[in-house]
C-alpha cells in the first residue's frame, strides 16, 4: 500500500481526511491493542493531520502516542471508578 501523502489528503474534503488517516492508523494500532484500537485511533485522530502523517511514517513516534493515549484512557477509567465509589 503506497504511503498516504499530503497531496492525497489535500485532494480530499476535510471530513474524509480524518477517515483516510484513520484507515491507516487503525491496523497499526490493532496489532498492538486489538480491543482498544478503535478508541485509541479516535483519540489520535484529534491530532492535526500534519503530525498524524508524520506519525504514520515514524513508528516510534506513533508508538509513543499510542502509549500516551492508553495511559490517558486508563487514567480516565480509574477516575470514573473512583467517582462511582464516592457516590
Amino acid at each position: 500500500q503506497e504511503p498516504l501523502t499530503v497531496s492525497m489528503l489535500a485532494a480530499a474534503p476535510l471530513h474524509k481526511q480524518k477517515q483516510m488517516i484513520g484507515e491507516r492508523l487503525y491496523p497499526l494500532i490493532y496489532n498492538v491493542h486489538t480491543q482498544l484500537a478503535g478508541k485509541i485511533t479516535g483519540m489520535l485522530l484529534e491530532i492535526d493531520n500534519s503530525e498524524l502523517l508524520y506519525m504514520l511514517e515514524s513508528p516510534e513516534s506513533l508508538n509513543a502516542k499510542v502509549e500516551e493515549a492508553l495511559a490517558v484512557l486508563i487514567q480516565a477509567h480509574q477516575t470514573m471508578e473512583e467517582e462511582q465509589m464516592k457516590v
Partner: peptide, 21 residues
Amino acid sequence: RKSTLNPNAKEFNPRSFSQPK
C-alpha cells in the same frame, strides 16, 4: 506533563480494515 489526548474522543470505525483471519 498533561496529555492533550481526549479520552472521550469518538471511537473510529474502520471501513476498509478486514480483521486478520
